[in-house]
């Protein structure tokens, strides 16, 4: 971890940037959460490092863009991952983007979700902060969107499941994340689902039915205060 520079403290981990084996590398260290009991903290951290590593390997063998995994270090609770020099989160991108660009990125998000769900991978924490846009030409040019690829990150809550239930919940988590921070969320989520439908022809119907069910679960819940 020598010469690594702290660039961000996310909710889950501290993110460092540096060079490992000659490659630009991001280290995601799930530091000790002092607020929770050490026993619980150790268990959760280990589980999530494993979940994230497994999901990344699964995704990559299915041809889904995620960062490459360089090293798992359980001792320092760290994952060494490929660092994307020229990238922006979908959240930040959408803030500035025109309607036309939002349409494009929404399509790509829907297509990426179709692909992971088609491979029975459940992300578990889908938000627009956990989706990266990477400029393949290395110019940080996101305006044209022609050389941009979409990369999914933060698989700490991921697991494998073939049921429509977990896929539906996955979409529901994303929908609410979008509603809570983006303007015109209905349009954006509708565009994402449109792409999801066309890119996931064999499975989307069941998942979207489930999504409707999950939504009413949230709405109609008995609430007493």
């Amino acid at each position: 971890m020598k010469d690594f520079e702290l660039i961000k403290q996310g909710a889950e981990a501290r993110i460092y940037k540096g060079v490992y084996l000659g490659k630009p590398t991001l280290v995601k260290q799930r530091f000790e959460k002092k607020y929770r009991h050490p026993h619980l903290d150790n268990n959760l951290t280990k589980e999530r490092i494993k979940a994230e590593s497994r999901a990344i390997v699964r995704c990559r063998s299915a041809g889904i863009e995620t960062p490459s995994l360089y090293l798992i270090d359980l001792k320092t609770r760290s994952l060494y991952l490929e660092y994307f020099e020229h990238s922006i989160t979908a959240k930040d991108f959408i803030k500035e983007a025109s309607d036309e660009l939002i349409e494009k990125v929404a399509y790509d998000i829907g297509a990426a979700l179709a692909k992971i769900h088609g491979n029975n991978i459940i992300h578990g924490d889908l938000t627009t902060s956990n989706i990266l846009l990477v400029d393949k030409t290395g110019r940080n040019n996101f305006k044209s969107y022609s050389d941009v690829k979409l990369v999914l990150i933060d698989f700490g809550l991921a697991h494998m499941d073939s049921s429509p239930e977990d896929k539906g919940v996955d979409l529901y988590v994303l929908e609410r994340a979008i509603i809570s921070i983006h303007n015109n969320p209905d349009r954006m989520f509708a565009l994402i689902l449109k792409a999801y439908r066309s890119e996931y022809p064999n499975g989307h119907a069941e998942v979207l039915n489930k999504l409707d069910e999950v939504r009413t679960r949230g709405r109609k819940r008995l609430v007493i205060g």
């Binding site: 619980l40 959760l44 578990g124 924490d125 609410r176």
Partner: peptide, 11 residues
């Protein structure tokens, strides 16, 4: 400390 089920789904 007794380990118990821990259930977080996204948010």
């Amino acid at each position: 400390f007794v380990p118990l089920p821990y259930c977080v789904k996204g948010m």
